[in-house]
Design a protein around this nucleic acid. Structure first.
Lengths: 257, 257
DNA sequence: CACTTGTTGTTATTATGATAACAACATTTA
DNA sequence: TAAATGTTGTTATCATAATAACAACAAGTG
C-alpha cells in the first residue's frame, strides 16, 4: 500500500505552518508522526505519516541535522522527536537570526543608496493591505508639522488613530470629520461628528468597510478605501493636484448637510 | 542583455536569508534592487537586479501582496520599497504567527499521544548538533536527584555548565574531573583538575573540541564528542550496560596518573 | 515611425515528492 | 540445515510542481 494516506485537515494546516519555518511537507509529516509515536522505527513512521518508506530515511536524516530528532543505535534504528517547544524555538530562532542579518544588510543598502529624497512629489502611490496602509498612515501623521485634516469612516483603526493624534505636537491643528469619537477632545483638536452622506452609502459596493481622507500640512494626502470583497487599498501622494482635489473633497464634506 | 548579471557575494548571502523569510530568489533580488533605487520602473529594476524584465512584473505583484512595495499610478508604473525595518518586521511576524500556531497544535499532539514513558531504558540515542546536545544535557542535569559525575573537556559550554550545576539541589553530590574550574566550589561539589591523558591527546583526531562524560544518578549517561571536522555528536542512554561502561571509564580517569 | 511598456505563453531548471529495485540480514519453516 | 519469507536500509529512477528564463507581441508613447 504505497498510496499517500490522506492526512487529517488539521495536519495539513499544521504542515503549512511548519513549511514557513523551513520544513518541507515530508519533514513536517514525519515530525508530526514521530510526536504521536516516539521511538518509532522507520517503518512505523512510514505507516503513521503516509510518507513513502524509502523517503522516510533521508527525511529523518535532514530532521536530525536540523536537530529535531535523535537516533538510536539499535537495529532497526529508532527515532525520537525533540519536544515541540524546543523544536519550534530552535527553528524560529534560526529564522530570526536570518532576519536580523538581513535587516542590517538591507538597512545599509537602503541608507547608502543615493535615492532622491523628494521624488515622491508628483507621483500617486497605491498601497495594498491593511497593515501596510496602517503603517504608512501612522508614519505620515507622525510627521505632521502644522495641520491635519481627516475624513474618517473606518471602525477598525479608530482607537489607534485617536491615540496617535493625541500624541502629536500641540502646534498641529487637527480637524476631523467622522461618525463617532471616543476620546478626549484637546485644545488643538476639532471634531465634527457626521454620518456619511447618502451618495456614498448608495454606492453599489457590497461591503463598505472604510472610506477615509487624510491631508497633512496641506502637502500630503492619503485616501483609504476598503470593502470586504476587495480588501483595502490606499492612495498616497504629495502631488499638488492630488492634494487640492481631496482638500476640495474635504470642504465639500465639511459643508454638506 | 538578458544574461543574469552575477550579483555581489553579499547579495547572494542576503538573498539566502530572505528566502528563509519566505521570499523567492527573484523577490529578494527585486526588493534589494528597489532599495538601491526607490521609485524605479520595471525596466530599471530589471537592469539593476538582473531579473528578466518579463519576470519583474509578477514578482512586483507578489511583493505588493506581501506589502513590501507600493505602486505608483503613473505610466510607466513606478515602485517604492517598504522600509527594511518594517518589511522584515512584517515578514518575521507572519512566521512567528505560524510558529505560535504550530507550537500549540504540536504540543497538543505530543501530550495526547500515549507514548510509553520508559522506553528509553535500553536504547542508546545519537544526538547531533551543539545546540541540540546542550539542550538535552542541561535538561538531564536539571533532573538530577542524587549524584552527578562528570568528565569535562569542552571549553565552549563550561560557563553554562557551572551555572547549571550550582543551581542544583544541595542533596546532589557532584564530582567533576576537568581541566579548569572558574567558579565557587560549594559544599556538595568536588572538583578534580586534571589534564586529559596522553592516550586521548595522541588520538589521530585533527581538531578535538570536546570530550565529556556525564553520569546522573548512576542511571543515565551522556557522552559528548566533538571535533572541528565532524561537528558534535553525543550519545545518551539509560541502558545499564552503557552506564556501567562509562562509570568504569570515569573511575579510570579518576585514578589515572 | 521607433521605442518602451506591459502582457502572454513557452521552455529550462530545480526542488520535492513518489515509486521501484536491491543487497544485507533476520526469521520462519520444511 | 537449507530454502523460503520477511524486514531494513540504501540507491536509482521517475513524476510533479514551483521557480526561473526567454521569446514574442500588443498597446501605448513620444
Amino acid at each position: 500500500m504505497y498510496l499517500m494516506a490522506e492526512p487529517a485537515a488539521q495536519t495539513v494546516a499544521l504542515a503549512e505552518s511548519l513549511k514557513s519555518l523551513g520544513l518541507t511537507k515530508y519533514e513536517a509529516l514525519v515530525y508530526i508522526a514521530l510526536l504521536q509515536a516516539s521511538e518509532a522505527t522507520a517503518t512505523e513512521i512510514h505507516e503513521l505519516s503516509g510518507v513513502p518508506r524509502a523517503s522516510v530515511y533521508p527525511v529523518l536524516e535532514r530532521l536530525s541535522q536540523k536537530q529535531l530528532v535523535s537516533v538510536s543505535n539499535t537495529s532497526p534504528r529508532r527515532f525520537n522527536p525533540e519536544r515541540p517547544d524546543d523544536a519550534i524555538e530552535s527553528l524560529l530562532s534560526s529564522v530570526e537570526h536570518d532576519a536580523a542579518r538581513a535587516k542590517t544588510t538591507l538597512n545599509r543598502i537602503y541608507s547608502q543608496s543615493g535615492r532622491r529624497a523628494r521624488g515622491d512629489q508628483e507621483l500617486i502611490w497605491s498601497i495594498h493591505g491593511g497593515d501596510h496602509i496602517r503603517l504608512r498612515l501612522l508614519e505620515m501623521l507622525q510627521a505632521a508639522d502644522e495641520s491635519v485634516r481627516i475624513i474618517f469612516y473606518w471602525d477598525h483603526l479608530k482607537g489607534e488613530l485617536i491615540e496617535r493624534l493625541l500624541s502629536l505636537k500641540k502646534e498641529v491643528k487637527i480637524d476631523i470629520i467622522t461618525d463617532g469619537w471616543s476620546g478626549p477632545v484637546q485644545g488643538q483638536i476639532n471634531v465634527l461628528v457626521k454620518a456619511p452622506p447618502m451618495e456614498i452609502q448608495r454606492e453599489p459596493v457590497t461591503n463598505w468597510q472604510a472610506g477615509c481622507v487624510f491631508i497633512v500640512d496641506k502637502k500630503k494626502a492619503m485616501v483609504v478605501m476598503g470593502s470586504k470583497d476587495e480588501g483595502f487599498t490606499a492612495l498616497y501622494s504629495e502631488s499638488v493636484g492630488f492634494v487640492r482635489f481631496f482638500t476640495m473633497y474635504w470642504n465639500f464634506f465639511l459643508n454638506w448637510g
